[in-house]
């Protein structure tokens, strides 16, 4: 194969655990790199996403920057994949949806123990928080979902291998885990 598939990855409101699990493919990454090259990703430190074949998105959508990045991924990536529990239903960050944004900010920045000069941060460089944490599929169209917290290295490997071979990727029911 002469043309390598371009792959971008990002973590929105996630913990980078899915990225760590991606690296759990270990030496199989070498094999994959015969067919795939990275575009924007924490692995390359490229900051802007270019035209890609595959975009892997970890994490839910919790702030305005997440929305920008996610929309850029949707525009640039032919196949966009929601990776892990947080991308799929908001996950652990979505537990803040129980409370109003004001309550969350006050609890953390005004009422927290041991705070000096408590105030809610308002630097213009900080991305504005959304009212709730959303699954990525509620912001853009998603083509595939890889559940798990995180999805295992095997799930990543089989998924990418299917795409490289031009097959419709399927997650085996027996491998399905949400935890």
């Amino acid at each position: 194969m002469t043309h390598k598939l371009k792959l971008a990855t990002t973590s929105l409101a996630g913990c980078f655990g899915c990225h760590m699990s991606f690296l759990d493919m270990d030496e199989r990454l070498v094999e994959l790199l015969e067919h795939i090259e990275f575009d924007r990703s924490p692995f390359t430190d490229i900051k802007q996403v270019g035209p890609c074949d595959i975009g892997l998105v970890e994490g839910g959508v919790c702030n305005a920057e997440n929305v920008h990045v996610l929309r850029a991924f949707r525009t640039q990536c032919r196949i966009l994949v929601a990776v892990g529990a947080c991308a799929i239903n908001g996950g652990v960050p979505a537990m803040r949806n129980h409370y109003s944004l004001q309550e969350c900010l006050e609890e953390v920045y005004l009422k927290g123990a041991g705070l000096e000069n408590p105030h809610i941060p308002n630097d213009p460089e900080l991305p504005l928080l959304l009212d709730k944490v959303y699954p990525v599929s509620e912001v853009v169209k998603i083509d595939y979902f890889l559940p798990g917290c995180p999805p295992s290295g095997d799930i990543f490997y089989n998924f990418l291998k299917d795409l490289i071979r031009g097959k419709v990727p399927r997650v085996n029911k027996h491998e399905l885990r949400y935890d």
């Binding site: 929601a82 799929i88 239903n89 908001g90 979505a94 959303y134 699954p135 599929s137 509620e138 998603i142 595939y144 979902f145 890889l146 559940p147 997650v171 029911k173 399905l176 885990r177």
Partner: peptide
């Protein structure tokens, strides 16, 4: 798992 559910499909 049994039914092969990958995501919630409907809005949360």
């Amino acid at each position: 798992y049994h039914l092969g559910m990958l995501e919630g499909h409907y809005p949360q």
